[in-house]
């Protein structure tokens, strides 16, 4: 089977990675004040780790890499905040900075757009290649 869109797997892996990253950021924002998670413990901020992965290439010699994404917990400790239910007392809440998350979200969105542009370019170039020899 010939590869009519070479390198599209790489772009697909990046789009998927950015989507996962945006999901993790949304989750952090949603749980910025969660004192009890599903496991009964304080919500722990999650983050993503991006790694480049050599593409499985039977011929070899292709150094282009895909992106592999892993979700890992952020080990930063909780912070103390006034307890709204009991004035004068403090409770532990996750240390989530909304500004930090929003900046990450913008970066993620821009990278997603760039990869989408790469996918569109691949498509239009494949169409051009397929019409070699045709009268336009």
């Amino acid at each position: 089977m010939i590869d009519i869109l070479p390198g599209i797997q790489t772009t697909a892996s990046a789009l998927q990675a950015e989507r996962i990253r945006a999901d993790v950021i949304s989750q952090n924002l949603a749980n910025a004040l969660t004192t009890r998670g599903a496991d009964g413990k304080l919500y722990q901020r999650q983050q993503v780790r991006f790694e480049s992965l050599l593409v499985n290439d039977p011929q070899g010699g292709n150094p282009v890499r895909e992106v592999q994404v892993t979700i890992i917990p952020d080990e930063r400790p909780a912070r103390w905040a006034p307890d709204p239910a009991n004035p004068g007392r403090m409770i532990e809440i996750p240390d989530i900075n909304v500004h930090e998350e929003m900046v990450d979200l913008i970066v993620s969105q821009r990278t997603y757009e760039a990869n989408l542009a790469a996918a569109k370019a691949a498509r239009s170039m494949a169409i051009q290649t397929l019409s070699i020899g045709k009268r336009s």
């Binding site: 390198g7 790489t10 892996s13 970066v107 990278t111 790469a118």
Partner: peptide, 10 residues
């Protein structure tokens, strides 16, 4: 270029 864009954040 596709590979570079994909790994822009790696």
């Amino acid at each position: 270029i596709s590979g570079n864009l994909a790994n822009a954040e790696t």
